[in-house]
Design a protein around this nucleic acid. Structure first.
Lengths: 148, 148
DNA sequence: CTGATATAGTTAGCAAGGCTAATTAAAACT
DNA sequence: AGTTTTAATTAGCCTTGCTAACTATATCAG
């Protein structure tokens, strides 16, 4: 993949290309681990915002997850019916709801997160300490490059 | 995110965690670029296999994309009706079809790929050469860690 | 060579997750 | 008080994943 026109790409573009494809493959493997939680991906991701970030409004959650409110409303419906989150009305602004993870939701999320991190760490542990340091530096650099 | 239980994680697990979240954010931003092609993501991805890998059977394409044949059959239907790919019957085995990208499909894909790579490269170009070298090394290390 | 079995692909039908447009209820602002 | 804005939901669409069931062709056993 991507061999044809390499000649037309400069070095930075080649790096961009490899970085992209590496990210795709990395996440593809991790997703298999997440499937073991039994929670569908969008739901798991929203739940994780709630567990790590605390209670938040529906619109806040939607924008944290970069989806539209109706999409998030339905995701929260599903999480709620599985007993993983809870809706409260915000008494300061009765139009708004506050969504929070239940104990059960938090427990399940921590489990899944642990599985995912251990899976990745198991792979990373096969590298040398120097290689891991390289990845660490690269992660910092990528974050720097991508934030505005 | 991920601040709560860091104490319970060792260094490699922390790295795994940051790597994971960096990959997610990277791809989320790139996806916005891909949307500009006007082709839905699964279709774009299948088309890219055809353009970079050449003609292939439906089952082959499905397994390259890690989806089931019925899913791919429908994706190919959509691409075909947009004139981006073409189905041929394999004359050696008349049960099988061979799917190939049309000129139009290839052209659109190259455009989109160029946009995506340039977008990423634009961000990477704000880093120092040393930082880009770090990313390069890290990409290699990650691939090594994740294969097999 | 014929009947059974295996393989390639499609069709039908379900679920998840994305969207916009329209609606409802509450808040905020003339 | 009446209008406008805002938070969330509902309705209805599309895409993309799946399994089960079907069709057509190929292969294999006797």
């Amino acid at each position: 993949m991507g061999k044809l026109n390499k000649t037309a790409m400069n070095k930075t573009e080649e790096l961009a290309d490899r970085l992209h494809s590496t990210a795709i493959h990395l996440l593809r493997q991790v997703r298999v681990q997440d499937a073991a939680t039994g929670i569908a991906p969008a739901r798991l991701s929203a739940l994780s915002v709630l567990v790590f970030g605390g209670p938040i409004s529906l619109n806040g959650l939607a924008s944290a997850e970069q989806v539209r409110p109706p999409t998030m409303s339905r995701i929260v419906d599903a999480l709620e019916s599985e007993g993983l989150v809870r809706r409260r009305t915000n008494e300061q602004d009765r139009r708004a709801v506050v969504i929070e993870a239940t104990e059960k939701g938090a427990a399940i999320l921590w489990q899944g997160r642990k599985r995912r991190v251990k899976f990745l760490a198991r792979h990373l542990s096969r590298l040398s300490a120097a290689e891991r340091r390289q990845i660490e530096n690269a992660v910092r650099a990528i974050q720097k490059a991508m934030t505005k």
